[in-house]
Design a protein around this nucleic acid. Structure first.
Length: 249
DNA sequence: TAGGCCATCTGGTCCT
DNA sequence: AGGACCAGATGGCCTA
């Protein structure tokens, strides 16, 4: 690169490449906002974002295809197929699953052809067509286990939430509104500074226990509890995506 | 300190 | 020819 002319051409090419990569990263940021568990402070890596998006699309398309809502645990497990443990923890935390059971269910996922351990959580009322994402083996529906009872707690929490609390109107001018694509909302996460004034968002927050580890879930606590727990969970805020998914049938 | 993630630079290839 | 696209190399930053 001794020639000044070629040097400047190289500089121009570098600038174009930078812009191209910035555009790619912007697109990736947009993707992060519409997959479950969007976090400004704890961004998913590029590869995790793509994996989660793939699983998310697959899971939603399965719901549409089958016309039934799965249990939350199965849904989230499908979301987390192939994700790293930190990301899995984040997603599970966002959705307030019992982390211990959930992670146990994840164990052994490396052996894709083995019987999936989390199949024991699969509810008997489930349509057998609802399998696992491509390349992740199959579920064993032969067991008749008590379904993971997320729905009543999940729905009662949301049903007890006043409509006003679900409104994005409380969000500040710098805070982007919940993203809504065809009626499906993303999960959102707010900056920690906003918690004091925004804890009454209701619909955008996950209900988490006021104390104890992730797995000791209880739903429907008062806003101050939500604030503290959300900070514990990496400020994870649940949007209305799954609310819509799990209550629209 | 090792490993993961990322941004940037760079040269090669493909496309218009 | 010029730009877009791609993949390898490199170094910085962060975290366990």
């Amino acid at each position: 690169m001794k020639n000044p002319e070629s040097f400047s051409k190289r500089q121009e090419a570098n600038a174009r490449e930078r812009n191209r990569m910035h555009g790619l990263n912007d697109a990736l940021d947009n993707l992060r906002k519409v997959v479950p568990c969007y976090s400004k402070t704890q961004k998913l890596s590029k590869i995790e974002t793509l994996r989660l998006a793939k699983n998310y699309i697959w899971a939603l398309s399965e719901i549409l295809r089958i016309g039934k809502r799965p249990d939350l645990l199965t849904f989230v497990q499908n979301l987390c197929k192939g994700l790293s443990q930190p990301t899995t923890n984040l997603v599970a935390g966002c959705l307030q699953l019992n982390a211990r059971s959930f992670l146990m269910g994840q164990a052994g996922e490396g052996a894709h052809h083995a019987r999936s351990p989390y199949s024991t959580f699969y509810p008997p009322y489930h349509s057998p067509e609802l399998g696992t994402p491509p390349g992740h083996g199959t579920l064993d529906n032969s067991k008749s286990m008590k379904p993971y009872n997320y729905c009543s707690a999940y729905e009662s929490f949301y049903e007890s939430t006043s409509p006003e609390c679900a409104s994005p109107q409380f969000e500040g001018p710098l805070s982007p509104p919940p993203i809504n694509y065809n009626g499906i909302f993303s999960l959102k996460q707010e900056e920690s500074l906003d918690y004091g004034k925004n804890y009454n968002y209701g619909m955008h927050y996950c209900a988490v226990p006021p104390r104890g580890p992730l797995g000791q879930s209880s739903i429907g606590h008062s806003p101050p509890h939500l604030i503290k727990s959300e900070q514990m969970l990496g400020h994870c805020v649940i949007g209305t995506t799954l609310f819509n998914v799990f209550t629209s049938f």
